[in-house]
């Protein structure tokens, strides 16, 4: 089991209850959509997974890290086992495409030769080899998101978390991103994707988790966007 949650609650300091009583588990190699209206707690739930937020109550395990016995100094180890992709790409504008991908390897002090090899591999995977020396601003949204995905994959994480990765993209580009995520998933990486994109969810049928008002209201294999 890659992710395991038992009766997890999250209440923010200002008293807002973001998540209540979430119990679920996700297996290695799954592809999971996380859907629900804005403010339902999707982002909070994703943030719990990579410990950007801490649960207020409840037990959880991610990638073999038991959060009830988690030490702050191990945070970077958890983070290296998770790749995160955002709606707004979060690339570094002053760095080229390949430098942006190498960034994730450099900050964990990978050997120079391995960085070069891995960056080439990733550029090939996301189909941006020709744009290696260009800057993110010169590329389309879809291409920028592919850079972000390459960066998230750089450290060969067990889990990819994508928070509305297609939110800023048109349908064509969204399909490309989805195909890329599927390919990554086929290679064994677990993918969790929060989305509002009805067409995508209905077209690529996968397990659907639906949050509403901080509660898990649906957990359906090969589900569709709208509740049956």
């Amino acid at each position: 089991m890659l992710i395991e949650m038992q009766h997890v609650f999250k209440t923010y300091k200002n008293g807002v209850v973001a998540l209540s009583d979430i119990t679920l588990s996700i297996d290695k190699g799954e592809f999971v959509y996380l859907i629900g209206p804005s403010g339902a707690g999707k982002s909070t739930w994703l943030k719990l997974l990579y410990r950007e937020e801490l649960p207020t109550k409840g037990k959880m395990m991610v990638n073999g890290f038991d959060f009830s016995r988690f030490k702050r100094r191990h945070l970077h180890r958890l983070r290296r086992s998770i790749g995160v992709v955002f709606q707004d790409y979060r690339l570094i504008d002053r760095l080229t495409v390949e430098e942006n991908i190498a960034f994730a390897l450099e900050v964990i002090e990978a050997p120079a030769r391995e960085i070069r090899r891995r960056v080439q591999e990733l550029l090939y995977l996301v189909g941006l080899k020709v744009h290696a020396k260009r800057f993110p601003r010169e590329l389309s949204g879809g291409e920028q998101q592919r850079i972000a995905i390459a960066r998230a994959l750089a450290n060969k994480p067990q889990l990819i978390i994508a928070d509305e990765p297609t939110g800023n993209l048109d349908y064509e580009n969204s399909l490309q991103i989805l195909k890329l995520l599927e390919e990554i998933n086929l290679q064994g990486t677990t993918v969790i994707m929060a989305t509002h994109d009805r067409d995508i969810v209905n077209r690529f049928r996968r397990r659907v988790l639906e949050l509403s008002g901080g509660r898990l209201v649906r957990d359906e294999a090969k589900g569709v966007y709208d509740r049956p």
Partner: peptide, 16 residues
């Protein structure tokens, strides 16, 4: 700030 947050996200150690 953004760069530091990204560093933390992709797993840079605190000392780094």
């Amino acid at each position: 700030r953004e760069e530091v947050e990204l560093m933390r996200l992709v797993g840079a150690s605190k000392w780094y």
